[in-house]
Amino acid sequence: MRRRGDERGPALLDALLEGRPEPDLAARAASGLGLPERGRYAVAVLGPCAGGPPGVAAEAEGLRFFRRRLADREVVLVALGDRDPATLAALLTRWYPGPGGIGPVADGLEGLGAARRLAELALLTCPPGTTDIVRLEERLPAALLVSQPELSARLVADVFGPLLALAPADRALLVGTLDAWLECGGSAGRAAGRLFCHRNTVLNRLRRLERLTSRSLSRPRELIEMTLALDAFRMTAPQP
């Protein structure tokens, strides 16, 4: 009977993570997995990778972890208890090479399917070649973009179309300057320090970018367009 229960637990967990509409699924899974039906849970989705707590279930740092492989993804369910979900990304980074995405906290086992889908969206916001493990709450604008790939592609073509015609090195220079300027809160001086160039060089590159895109970084709506287009471009641009 114990062996049968051990085999049933992972199957019930898979059903929860896939969001199957089965009767009394949450109650049966709670019994089979030894988890409270109502509680605070987080789901992380990672690409194929090694490491992490051994086995399907484990405890570490006061948290309970359950690992499953769905398709080509590693899915980690975490029973948070009263712990802050902000600490989870740092903890997973110690075990997994990334990239990975963490969905919002689910209030009970019934919410695991939605939490897993949103964790996959968070994973998709990680640009190619990066190894970050990110929370959806940190990437909401980018998550909107990846959830609408056709609109995202049109946004990149409409805003960055002239940049796409440039030589790759020239395009990377302008895009990297815009990225640094945004990361530095719109400070050309701080961006110059990050890029190891003069402040005027940053300003000249930004003016050129404005001319190419026919948009002004000083107009809020156009700045939003540029920022969203940058996110969409970085998530889809091939690695050099």
Rank of each mutant, 00 (worst) to 15 (best):
Arg3Tyr: 05
Gly5Ala: 15
Asp6Ala: 15
Asp6Ile: 15
Gly9Met: 13
Pro10Tyr: 01
Ala11Trp: 02
Leu13Tyr: 00
Asp14Thr: 15
Ala15Glu: 10
Leu17Pro: 08
Leu17Arg: 02
Glu18Leu: 15
Gly19Tyr: 04
Gly19Pro: 05
Arg20Ile: 07
Glu22Arg: 13
Glu22Trp: 14
Asp24Ser: 13
Asp24Trp: 14
Arg28Leu: 15
Ala29Pro: 12
Ala29Leu: 07
Ser31His: 14
Leu33Ile: 03
Leu35Trp: 12
Leu35Tyr: 02
Pro36Thr: 07
Pro36Asn: 09
Glu37Leu: 03
Arg40Cys: 09
Tyr41Cys: 07
Ala42Met: 05
Val43Lys: 01
Val43Ile: 11
Val43Gln: 02
Val45Ala: 14
Leu46Thr: 07
Gly47His: 06
Gly47Lys: 09
Pro48Gly: 11
Pro48Trp: 00
Gly51Asn: 10
Val56Ala: 13
Ala60Thr: 10
Glu61Ser: 15
Gly62Arg: 06
Leu63Ser: 04
Arg64Thr: 12
Phe65Tyr: 15
Phe65Arg: 02
Phe66Thr: 13
Arg67Asn: 07
Arg69Ile: 11
Arg73Met: 10
Glu74Ser: 13
Glu74Pro: 00
Glu74Lys: 14
Val75Leu: 04
Gly81Ile: 12
Asp82Asn: 13
Arg83Asn: 10
Asp84Ile: 03
Ala86Gln: 12
Ala90Thr: 11
Ala90Gln: 13
Tyr96Gly: 02
Pro99Ser: 03
Gly100Trp: 10
Gly101Asn: 05
Ile102Asp: 12
Gly103Gln: 09
Glu110Phe: 02
Gly111Tyr: 03
Ala115Arg: 04
Arg116Ser: 12
Arg117Asp: 14
Leu118His: 10
Glu120Asn: 03
Leu121Asp: 06
Leu121Thr: 04
Ala122His: 02
Leu123Tyr: 09
Leu124Pro: 00
Thr131Cys: 09
Thr131Gln: 10
Thr131Trp: 00
Ile133Ser: 06
Val134Trp: 04
Leu136Asn: 05
Leu136Gly: 12
Leu136His: 09
Leu136Met: 08
Ala143Thr: 04
Ala143Phe: 08
Ala143Met: 05
Leu144Ile: 00
Arg154Thr: 08
Arg154His: 14
Val159Thr: 12
Gly161Cys: 08
Pro162Ser: 06
Pro162Thr: 03
Leu163Gly: 00
Leu166Arg: 07
Pro168Leu: 06
Pro168Val: 08
Arg171Leu: 11
Leu174Gln: 01
Leu174Glu: 01
Val175Asn: 00
Gly176Phe: 00
Leu178Ser: 00
Asp179Cys: 01
Trp181Val: 01
Glu183Cys: 03
Gly185Ile: 02
Ser187Phe: 11
Ser187Gly: 06
Arg190Phe: 05
Ala191Val: 03
Ala192Thr: 05
Arg194Ile: 10
Cys197Lys: 00
His198Val: 01
His198Gln: 13
Asn200Leu: 09
Asn200Gln: 15
Thr201Gly: 12
Thr201His: 08
Thr201Tyr: 08
Leu209Arg: 00
Leu209Gln: 02
Thr213Leu: 01
Ser214Gln: 14
Ser214Cys: 13
Arg215Pro: 00
Ser216Ala: 13
Leu217Gly: 04
Pro220Leu: 13
Pro220Asn: 06
Arg221Leu: 14
Arg221Phe: 02
Glu222Asp: 12
Glu222Arg: 07
Leu223Val: 05
Leu223Glu: 11
Ile224Ala: 14
Glu225Gly: 08
Thr227Glu: 13
Ala229Ser: 04
Leu230Val: 02
Asp231Glu: 14
Asp231Tyr: 15
Ala232Asn: 03
Ala232Glu: 00
Pro240Val: 05
